[in-house]
Computed example of a mutant assay.
Amino acid sequence: MTERGTGSAASDSAPSDKRPGRGRRWRRRLAIALAVVLLATAALYVGNSSTLAGRPPGGPFLLAHRGLAQTFDLAGVTNDTCTAERIHPPEHPYLENTLASMRAAFAAGADLVEFDVQVTRDGRLAVFHDATLQCRTDGTGTVGEHTLAELRGLDLGYGYTSDGGRTFPFRGKGVGLLPTVEEVLAEFPDRELLIHLKVERAAEGEALADLLATLPQQRRDTLTVYGGDVAVGAFAARLPDVRVTSKKIMKDCMVAYLAVGWTGHVPDACRHRQLHLPQRYGRLMWGWPNRFVSRMREADTRVIVVNGSGEFSEGFDDADDVDAIPAGWTGGVWTNRIDVVAPLLGR
């Protein structure tokens, strides 16, 4: 009984003798794990912090959407809204997508002007935004249902009103103002242009590619094309040297970059592109804002920040909007009021 009791006491005390050692080893392992996590977190922060990188030289470049155009109230806008019927009281005489509006935009300080393209019934590349003609003009139907000559006869300012239809300040002033892509290229031979394929068909992209293929490489380097996935895909298949973007291209880039961008690496999906990023999505990117822009620039990709959610071409159009641009931003800024924003940014 004594031996049995002594053995039992010895066995009861043995585990308690070992527990302090196991506890110390567990605490050391936990401390090492926490140190590794802290070091990794610090490395991620240092490697992706724009604050620590300092303010890069230069300032933002400005993209004038549709040239210098009439703006409108975005409240309640849908894809079917006729925006010409809800413009703000006019503060300048220009109509979107005309040569005059593009000249005014460049004169006001734009680095890059965006315009919209559709193919006419006779195969010409006309500069016009809407899916149908009846909102903005005195015509009906689509661009694709008319010849270029017929479109030239329309009054591009016919439907604009800021007071519910009591007055039409641009009626009669837009006849003959609709340009072609060839005319825009000839008017601005050395300026940066963003060309928007408005119709989501492969034929639209192929037609634009056929035209731009006739230009020297140096000129094509100043052009960017964007639009729907199908149209842009068809364009890029024929003319891969021109910078392009679409929703799919931007999504593929962002997903790939979120996976590996913490290392500073820019994946192939993000190379030789243009990204139109609302700030709400940009903030998710490793190195946002300025390290991200610098990394993309090294990959021959331009980043243009868009206001709001990115729907309906929201731009940075007034002083409050400009205050929301990231500090030290050297990427692009999308605006519908280049005449207002350029002076605010020191142009």
Results as ranks from 00 to 15, higher is better:
Gly287Asp: 01
Ile304Lys: 00
Thr263Asn: 11
Arg291Val: 08
Phe292Lys: 07
Gly264Glu: 10
Val305Gln: 02
Tyr281Cys: 09
Pro289Ile: 09
Arg295Gly: 03
Gln274Lys: 04
Pro267Arg: 07
Trp286Asp: 00
Gly261Pro: 06
Ala269Gly: 13
Ser313Glu: 03
Asp268Arg: 15
Asp268Thr: 13
Arg295Tyr: 03
Asp300Cys: 09
Asn307Ser: 11
Thr263Tyr: 11
Tyr281Lys: 13
Arg291Phe: 06
Ser309His: 11
Pro278Thr: 10
Pro267Glu: 05
Glu311Asp: 12
Val293Cys: 05
Tyr281Leu: 14
Arg291Lys: 13
Leu277Glu: 07
Val266Gly: 03
Arg297Phe: 03
Arg302Tyr: 08
Cys270Glu: 01
Arg283Lys: 02
Phe312Thr: 01
Trp288Tyr: 14
Val306Pro: 09
Leu284Val: 00
Arg297Asp: 07
Met296Gly: 11
Tyr281Arg: 14
Ser294Glu: 15
Arg297Cys: 02
Gly264Met: 08
Glu311Leu: 12
His272Tyr: 09
Thr301Asp: 02
Arg280Thr: 04
Gln279Asp: 05
Phe292Trp: 15
Gln279Pro: 04
Arg273Pro: 04
Arg271Glu: 14
Gly261Cys: 04
Trp288Asp: 00
Arg295Pro: 00
Asp268Leu: 13
Gly310Val: 05
Val306Phe: 10
Met296Pro: 12
Pro278Trp: 12
Ala269Leu: 14
His265Met: 12
Arg302Glu: 08
Asn290Thr: 11
Asp300Asn: 13
Glu298Thr: 05
Pro278Gly: 09
Cys270Ser: 01
Val266Cys: 01
Gln274Cys: 03
Trp262Leu: 01
Phe292Cys: 06
His265Tyr: 14
Ser294Met: 15
His265Ile: 11
His276Gly: 11
Ser309Leu: 09
Gly310Arg: 06
His276Ala: 13
Val305Met: 02
Trp286Thr: 00
Val293Ala: 11
Tyr281Gly: 11
Met296Asn: 15
Leu275Thr: 00
Val293Pro: 05
Ser294Pro: 09
Phe292Met: 12
His272Asp: 11
Arg280Asp: 03
Gly310Asn: 05
Ser294Gln: 15
Arg273Trp: 06
Asn290Met: 04
Gly264Lys: 12
Asp300Pro: 08
Trp286His: 03
Glu298Ser: 07
Ser309Phe: 10
Arg295Glu: 02
Asp300Gly: 08
Leu284Trp: 00
Gly310Leu: 04
Gln279Ala: 05
His272Gln: 10
Arg271Ser: 14
Arg273Val: 07
Ser309Asn: 11
Gln274Asn: 04
Val306Thr: 12
Arg291Leu: 11
Leu277Arg: 07
Thr263Cys: 10
Met296Cys: 12
Ile304Pro: 00
Gly261Ala: 05
Gly308Trp: 10
Arg291Gln: 11
Gly282Glu: 00
Pro278Lys: 10
Ile304Arg: 02
Arg283Cys: 00
Gly261Tyr: 07
Arg297His: 08
Val260Ala: 06
Thr301Ile: 02
Thr263Val: 10
Asn290Phe: 04
Arg297Asn: 06
Trp286Arg: 00
Asn307Leu: 08
Ser309Asp: 13
Arg297Thr: 05
Gly287Asn: 02
Ala269Asp: 14
Arg271Gly: 13
Tyr281Asn: 14
Ser309Lys: 12
Glu298Met: 04
